[in-house]
Simulated assay, not measured.
Amino acid sequence: MEFTAGGRLELRLTRADVGKRVSVRRVSEEGTAGRKFTDTVGVLTSWNDGVLLITRRSGERVAIEESSLVAGKVVPAEPARRRGPSATYPELARASSRAWQPLESERLGDWQLRAADGFTRRANSVLPVGDPGVPLDDALRHVQDWYAARDLPAYAQTATGAEGTQELLCAELEARGWVREVSAELRIAALAPIGDAPDDARVVLGREPGEAWLARYQRKGASEVASKVLCAGPSVWFATVPGEGDVPAAIGRCVVDGRWAGFAAVEVDPAFRRQGLATTVMTALARRALDEGASAAWLQVEADNDGARALYDRMGFATHHAYHHYRAPERSTR
């Protein structure tokens, strides 16, 4: 917080600071022991009608009455993380998109519209990285028209909490009635420590998932489409640990793309959990990715998946940004 020469808190924000990272303090409660204060740090996404909206790193938006402010200032971007590789959001967004390719894709300026018959939001959402080349309202109408023509809901994949992310776009979408349905984390780590473990002869690696792998995979509703999406990517590998029957005890997928190795679909039969099989699968995939020249790892995990988050913490993964899927409002049928 800023202080004047007399030692009092000072407000150093104006509406011209919308879009910048800020730190504000407000009076949150008046009690018998005196006033209580709350500090908020994030991107100032709007300042209208006496209310400031600040988007935190997680994507949570905090509304603050202008009249409650006692101090505030613009603050520098978050320092680079000491753990893991350095990367911007646009680099990771495009790498993760190449690792989960749709059946159909179209460009709108720098934006990428993606469709895969409804199989996962990631493959059926617009990736709005860069400039669409037209005003935002026109771009969003085109997005809605494009998905409507394919009998799909219109989704936009956005992000918060890292260099090049899209707090302002999130605010613009919400102002237009788009609703956030899902949020998750994209985490990154150095690849070498993940592969630094002895070989496990039980792990079978291959270029295609196979029927047994797909039998373990939890998203089996659209198997033909799923197989096409799963097999697409720069250099795709599938890992399988056989179980007691036809269904594997554990599976995993990795896409090698330049310096990046992207992990997904790491799943373990409940009967075989707490035996280290998830780590075993990721180690085998990491070693193969290292052989192909990769040096950094990424993966995506939902915020409420405590077991997976704990595993990835132990493996050295740190959150790079939060990503979100916004669904377009229903259009009037009149």
Rank of each mutant, 00 (worst) to 15 (best):
M1P: 10
T4W: 10
G7L: 09
R8K: 03
L9G: 05
E10W: 11
T14C: 02
R15T: 02
A16S: 11
A16T: 07
D17S: 08
V18S: 05
G19E: 06
S23P: 02
S23N: 07
R25F: 11
V27P: 04
E30H: 15
E30V: 15
A33I: 00
K36F: 03
F37N: 12
T38H: 10
G42R: 01
V43T: 15
S46A: 08
S46G: 12
S46L: 04
N48E: 15
N48C: 09
N48V: 14
D49L: 06
L53T: 14
I54F: 09
I54P: 09
G59P: 06
G59D: 03
A63N: 02
I64N: 12
E65T: 12
E66H: 08
G72C: 11
K73D: 11
E78T: 13
A80Q: 14
R81S: 14
R83T: 12
P85V: 13
A87V: 04
T88Q: 01
E91I: 06
S97F: 13
L103Q: 07
L103T: 03
S105F: 02
D110S: 04
L113K: 12
A115H: 12
D117C: 11
R121F: 13
A123T: 13
D131F: 14
P132L: 05
G133I: 09
L136D: 00
L140T: 05
R141M: 07
V143P: 15
D145C: 05
D145V: 13
W146M: 10
W146N: 09
Y147T: 11
Y147H: 15
R150N: 15
P153Y: 14
A154I: 02
T158S: 03
A159N: 08
T165L: 06
E167I: 02
E172C: 00
L173C: 03
G177D: 03
W178G: 01
R180C: 14
E181S: 13
S183W: 07
A184S: 15
L186C: 14
A192Q: 09
P193D: 09
I194G: 01
G195L: 07
P198K: 05
D200G: 09
V203S: 03
L205S: 04
E211A: 15
A212E: 03
A215V: 00
R216L: 10
S223F: 01
V225F: 08
A226W: 14
V229G: 03
V236P: 01
W237N: 05
F238C: 01
A239G: 07
T240H: 04
P242M: 02
D246C: 01
V247A: 11
A249K: 03
A250L: 10
V256F: 12
D257Q: 08
G258I: 01
G262Y: 14
P270W: 01
Q275C: 04
G276S: 06
L277K: 03
L277P: 06
T280E: 04
M282A: 11
A284N: 02
A284V: 04
A286I: 02
A286T: 04
R288E: 11
A289H: 01
L290S: 00
L290Q: 02
V301R: 07
A303F: 08
A303T: 15
D304I: 10
N305G: 10
L311V: 00
M315D: 01
A318S: 15
Y323L: 11
Y323P: 08
H324D: 00
H325E: 08
Y326D: 02
Y326G: 03
A328I: 11
A328H: 06
E330T: 11
R331V: 04
R334Y: 08
